[in-house]
Each structure stands twice: as structure tokens, then as C-alpha cells.
């Protein structure tokens, strides 16, 4: 196995040092690594495993358990659409079908130009103003087909 890239390793080591005093530091570390790189680079795993005295398989096992952590970079923008019941009651399925058609991708995929990744989310706590969406961390309520088009126009 090749050595992890030195740039990644040093940044990850910094992040680990920042979190070393925490009780149960692995999730905060993974969040911080993802915030730094936009995903969890493969090369980060052995560094984390080594510093936390875990096996690489254990770190990978934790990372892969959680929907938030991605092994590959997302598109430049991430559109999350709520698929849960309260949003379904307001037409979320129809809106999601429109978004998938418009983008020409399925859930978890990124458009060919790398502009937009589409992710499902199960509830954003906006259930009284659904269908709900999140665009790069910004919440949007009462999303219909036209609103999807507007949101996509804003980011593309």
C-alpha cells in the first residue's frame, strides 16, 4: 500500500490533534475531515486509524455506517430533497421526480458537469412547510416544480 499523500496526512494530523482531548473523537474528526476536503479521502483513513489506535477496517466501518460521510467528492452544489412522510403528503415524490428528470440523474448521483449532486434526506424539521429542501446548507420550504427550477438556475 502506497504511503498516504503527505498534504492530506499533515492536514488530517492537524485535525486529529485539534480533537485529541474529546471523549469519543472519531465522529467529530470525520466531520472535520469532510469539511476540509469535501469528502473523506481514502488516504485519511490510515492516518486516523494510526492516531486513534484503531484498525483501518474499523475506521472505514464507522465512516461507511453514516449517510453523511462520502468517499467521493460531491458536485459543486448539493441539493437535498426531503423524502419523508410529511413532505410526501404535500407532493414531495412528484417534486423529486421532476428534479431527477431535470438533472438527468438519480438519487446520490452528480450531474456530468459536476455542478449538482442530488441527495435524499429524511426530514429537515420543516414538516409544516413541505416539501422541504436544502441547497448547500440553506433551507427552503414549500418547494414545487417551479421552485426546483429556480433553485437549480441559481446554482448552475
Amino acid at each position: 500500500m502506497a504511503q498516504p499523500s503527505p498534504e492530506i496526512a499533515s492536514r488530517v494530523e492537524e485535525i486529529i490533534a485539534d480533537h485529541a482531548a474529546l471523549e469519543g473523537p472519531l465522529l467529530p474528526i470525520l466531520h472535520a475531515v469532510q469539511a476540509a476536503f469535501g469528502h473523506i479521502p481514502r488516504d485519511a483513513l490510515p492516518v486516523i486509524a494510526d492516531k486513534l489506535n484503531l484498525s483501518r477496517a474499523e475506521v472505514h466501518g464507522v465512516m461507511s455506517f453514516y449517510h453523511d460521510f462520502r468517499e467521493d467528492k460531491a458536485g459543486r452544489h448539493v441539493l437535498k430533497l426531503c423524502r419523508a412522510e410529511a413532505c410526501q403528503a404535500m407532493g414531495a415524490d412528484r417534486v423529486a421526480a421532476h428534479a431527477r428528470g431535470k438533472l438527468g440523474i438519480e438519487w446520490h448521483q452528480t450531474t456530468q458537469d459536476g455542478a449538482v449532486t442530488l441527495e435524499p434526506v429524511f426530514c429537515l424539521g420543516l414538516c409544516a412547510c413541505g416539501p422541504a429542501a436544502m441547497v448547500d446548507g440553506r433551507v427552503v420550504g414549500r418547494v414545487d416544480e417551479a421552485r426546483v427550477d429556480e433553485l437549480l438556475a441559481e446554482v448552475r
Partner: peptide
């Protein structure tokens, strides 16, 4: 608070 239709905690 993962349940759909809940937002009291939030």
C-alpha cells in the same frame, strides 16, 4: 429528532 412531522426539539 429524525421522525418525520417532528420539529419541537429543533
Amino acid at each position: 429528532e429524525g421522525d418525520s412531522a417532528t420539529f419541537a426539539d429543533r
